[in-house]
Computed example of a mutant assay.
Amino acid sequence: MISEAARDALSTWLATQKALKGAAANTIDAYARDVGDFLRFMTLHNGEIQGLGALSRITTSDMRAWMAHTRGGDVGPRSLARKLSAVKSFYRWLSEREGFEPTAVLATRSPKFQRKLPRPLSPEAASDMINTLDAQSLTPWIAARDQAVVTLLYGCGLRISEALSLTGADLPLGQVLRIIGKGGKERLVPVIEPARAAVAQYARLCPYDIPRNGPLFLGARGGALSPRLIQKVMEQARAQLGLPATATPHAMRHSFATHLLNAGGDLRAIQELLGHASLSTTQAYTGVDTARLMEVYARAHPQGGG
């Protein structure tokens, strides 16, 4: 049970996150769930519905109790860190609006966890993956569709959601694609010739009329293609190739970034192509180490070396 005032505050904060920060629908849903669970816990923990006054008086002990309770529900350190981040963000906003000191909440330490670095495929494995998709379906247009999607992930560094959000209006693909990424951020992505050719081949073979204002990639019955189908066909292909479970659609995007960097690409340019807000995210994506970063820095700023 959450007090009406707390529920209204949460709704207003979520609307602010969506309007001012462009948070995606999935992010908003996660925030609502995480902060809502926190507020419900505090009601049970303190034995009374938590109005805004009670929420402003939450102590370090209360926070420890919530962390312990959440961990006890088989929630891993990474998920707990995400939940705590949402609660802190809500409290930062609430304390400014209501004029109280949120130190007990903001000072709560996030649990430590080992960040999993993405595992890009080798250039040969990425190429084998794309070629093997041709044999995963007995229906030629579906095989061409799957190849086209995965070629866009690897050749242009798109997220699967971005590839599947392309519409018939994007046909025929030009030299550059305008992509709306996470948080509504727009970026321009160069399109390599194999990606243009793969999409053109799919469009030629597709038995349905691809609507100008509808999805470019269609399912077997003519509706929008589900990302799960691409995940599934890649599972089949990686089993045939003996590739690890980490060879996922997202790994193709990682591979795009890593192979560009290894070929001498500039880290900041790759950051822009991927649509990352921070360089550290791109660094993790490519698995680039600090020594390599310093090499890039020294080349860009030779006077910095001495």
Rank of each mutant, 00 (worst) to 15 (best):
R228F: 11
A251V: 05
H254F: 05
P207K: 07
R221I: 07
A245C: 05
P249E: 04
Y208H: 12
Q201R: 15
A200R: 11
E235S: 10
R145D: 01
R253E: 07
G183K: 12
T132Q: 09
H259N: 11
Q240N: 11
S137M: 09
A143C: 13
L158Y: 04
Y154D: 13
R159W: 08
G242N: 08
V199D: 00
Q147S: 14
Q136R: 15
A220M: 13
L216E: 05
R159F: 04
S255E: 00
Q175R: 09
L188D: 15
R196C: 10
S226H: 08
G184M: 10
G222L: 13
V191S: 08
A198L: 01
H254P: 00
R145S: 08
L205S: 07
L166R: 00
S226F: 00
G223Y: 07
L216G: 03
T248V: 07
L153D: 05
K232P: 00
A135Y: 11
A198C: 10
L171T: 00
S137T: 11
C156F: 13
A143P: 14
Y202G: 07
I179C: 07
L243I: 01
L260P: 04
E235Y: 00
D134R: 15
Q136T: 14
I230L: 10
L243M: 01
G174Y: 15
D209V: 13
Q231T: 12
A247T: 01
V189H: 03
Q136G: 15
Q201I: 00
M252R: 10
Q136H: 12
P207L: 03
G168L: 06
T132L: 00
R145G: 06
Y154A: 14
V176A: 01
C156Y: 11
G223C: 10
Q175Y: 03
S226C: 02
P140E: 09
P211V: 00
L205F: 11
C156I: 07
Q231R: 15
G242K: 05
A198I: 07
T246M: 03
T248L: 04
M252F: 11
L138A: 14
M234I: 14
Y154L: 14
L171Q: 02
M234F: 09
E186G: 14
K182N: 13
T246C: 04
L218H: 06
D170T: 14
P190F: 09
T151W: 08
S226N: 11
P249V: 04
G174P: 12
L164D: 09
S165V: 02
V233T: 15
T167R: 13
L205K: 08
L153E: 10
L164N: 10
L260M: 11
K232H: 15
I192C: 13
A148L: 07
S161C: 06
T248E: 02
A257N: 07
R187L: 12
A203P: 03
L173T: 08
I192G: 11
S137F: 09
V176S: 02
A197I: 13
R204D: 06
I142M: 12
L225E: 12
T167G: 11
N131F: 07
A198K: 01
R204G: 08
L205E: 14
P190A: 11
V176N: 08
